[in-house]
């Protein structure tokens, strides 16, 4: 994988996120991390290490937390998404996100859930919506299970199905980057497997950044891995290399299961 030519899609430069006076991520110097186009980058580390905080900086979700402050730059195709005048709403349309808990809108139908983001960008044409919904549901490997009940409420789906529905919803607006915050943490092994399989096909269309608690998952699906510890980005590299020949003793201690 490393030999292939890959280009940087998104990149953080000296990124520091503070909550009040506490540094959430960027301890001992801001985080600079490249995210390669159409590759899966996994962010691993023990609870509270700052991996989710870093992830949420990539689509300006920290804007919603009054106490959070972001310093440094995040470049998306070379443009700083924190530059003055950049609309966070537009950033989030290019950089989608999937959360730990399935967050299907419970009062809406399956179809309306997937179409929600498309309607936000003003697409009203029935035929275009139908096509996009089908494409997104197929992309999220959910189409076969729900194609006969698109009008049924989303709350009737299982947890794993709801999570794939939220992935379909995120995919429907055709984002360039998909951020996933422990997307399988609340799912059973079979649903987890389905989502991991899905990730491998997804990366043909989008750049994926996935936060995971599960090192095996990171090893299975990702091309690159970044290891976070206590708000510091300790090590970044191709997944194979990081898991077999870690440079930092702290990385080695973590991946060999000595803590976390």
């Amino acid at each position: 994988m490393v030999q292939e030519a890959v280009d940087v899609h998104m990149e953080s430069r000296n990124l520091v996120v503070r909550y009040g006076n506490r540094v959430g991520v960027g301890v001992g110097g801001g985080v600079s991390l490249p995210l390669y186009r159409h590759r899966i980058t996994a962010l691993i580390g023990p609870s509270g290490c700052g991996k989710t905080t870093f992830l949420r900086a990539l689509n300006r979700m920290h804007d919603l937390t009054p106490t959070a402050r972001v310093e440094g730059e995040v470049l998306l195709d070379g443009e700083n998404i924190y530059a003055p005048g950049v609309d966070p709403v537009l950033v989030r349309r290019r950089v989608g996100m999937v959360f730990q808990k399935p967050t299907a809108f419970p009062t809406m139908s399956i179809y309306d859930n997937v179409a929600a983001g498309l309607k936000l960008v003003g697409i009203r044409d029935r035929k275009r919506l139908d096509e996009a919904v089908e494409r997104a549901l197929k992309g999220a490997a959910l189409w076969d299970e729900v194609k006969d009940r698109l009008r049924a409420p989303a709350s009737g789906l299982s947890g794993g199905q709801q999570q794939r529905l939220t992935i379909a919803r995120a995919l429907a607006v055709e984002p360039e980057v998909l951020l996933m915050d422990e997307p399988t943490a609340s799912l059973d092994p079979i649903s987890t497997q389905a989502i991991e399989d899905l990730l491998l096909t997804l990366k043909e269309q989008v750049t994926v950044v996935i936060v995971t608690h599960n090192m095996q998952q990171a090893a299975r699906v990702s091309d690159f891995t970044a290891f976070f510890l206590n708000g510091e980005m300790v090590e970044f590299g191709p997944t194979e290399l990081l898991f077999t020949k870690p440079k930092d003793p702290r990385t080695e201690a973590y991946i060999s299961g000595r803590f976390g």
Partner: peptide, 15 residues
């Protein structure tokens, strides 16, 4: 989570 899910879709406050 539900607010954030909507924000992450690129929704404005009203949306």
């Amino acid at each position: 989570e539900h607010r954030e899910a909507a924000y992450a879709l690129g929704a404005t406050r009203w949306e």
